[in-house]
């Protein structure tokens, strides 16, 4: 973990209420896909944890949905503004166990961390497939970006307005894969958990206090004991989850 000042390079909408922000700063503490950063915003007491979507030598990309005061404030941020950021938080995904053909399953704003994960897995010469799930066509983002990386992409929308009609689990049939990595709302994670026998890693979300393991605000019970989602997670192995 590192604390640093990051400067906003760009902040643009991807859909009606999902925004993409590129932040320039010291990203050396970010070592794995699936980690997150924790952003301090003027006038709000608690930081806002947002997962890392992409990384370069000196910048980090985040994608967030406007759901409350913090993300609303973030959506109005202008290039050049500076933010106090804690970076390199959370355990992140372990790519070493993926086997030759990992499948990445993301739902809604659970999609962004899978982008950096896909890049890492491709770097390791793995064949990466992706299932992206959204409510409807107007909420879809990053389909083309995953395709541009060279991933096989399946899209599912709940209302059928684009891709397969249904949930991400409805897009599983016929796919061959050696491992699953997933991130999304908890009902989706649960559905994935129940739909496959494949070994898998799940990224969880929880209301956090500090984001670095001090306050015990986000603890969950696992097979291997109490885990802080912010520090021991957000990624848990399938066999650790109590469902």
């Amino acid at each position: 973990m590192k604390q640093g000042i990051f400067e906003i390079v760009s902040n643009v909408p991807l859909t009606k209420n999902v925004f993409k922000t590129v932040l320039h700063g010291d990203v050396s503490a970010i070592t794995r896909p699936g980690q997150f950063i924790n952003i301090r915003l003027d006038g709000l007491y608690l930081r806002r944890p947002i997962s890392v979507c992409d990384l370069s030598e000196d910048s980090v990309t985040i994608i967030y949905k406007v759901v409350g005061k913090g993300t609303e404030k973030m959506s109005g941020m202008k290039p050049g503004e500076r933010l106090d950021v804690l970076s390199g938080l959370g355990n992140g995904y372990d790519t070493s166990v993926s086997g030759p053909s990992p499948l990445l399953i993301g739902g809604g704003v659970g999609v962004p961390p899978l982008y950096l994960l896909a890049k890492e897995l491709l770097k390791e010469d793995k064949s990466v497939s992706v299932i992206l799930g959204f409510n409807s066509a107007d909420e879809v983002f990053y389909e083309e970006e995953f395709k541009a990386l060279g991933c096989g992409v399946r899209l599912a929308t709940a209302d059928g307005s684009k891709g397969i009609k249904g949930f991400v689990t409805d897009a599983l049939s016929g796919l061959e894969y050696s491992y699953i990595y997933t991130c999304g709302p908890e009902p989706m994670l649960k559905a994935v958990y129940k739909s496959t026998d494949s070994p898998a890693q799940f990224s969880f979300e929880e209301r956090m206090g500090c984001g670095f393991g001090a306050c015990m605000g986000c603890t969950c019970e696992t097979v291997t004991g109490y885990k802080r989602i912010c520090r021991d997670g957000p990624v848990l192995f399938k066999e650790e989850i109590k469902w």
């Binding site: 709000l44 007491y45 608690l46 005061k69 929880e206 209301r207 956090m208 206090g209 306050c215 015990m216 605000g217 986000c218 603890t219 969950c220 019970e221 109490y226």
Partner: peptide, 30 residues
């Protein structure tokens, strides 16, 4: 962090909320 005689998980989540100039916690002595 407060110690008790027996181990404790604490309260179910969410157990953190924001307030003006502060926060609420209901960790419950994990």
């Amino acid at each position: 962090k407060g110690a008790t005689k027996e181990p404790r998980f604490g309260n179910p989540t969410p157990r953190i909320a924001e307030t003006p100039s502060g926060m609420l916690n209901a960790v419950g002595l994990q």
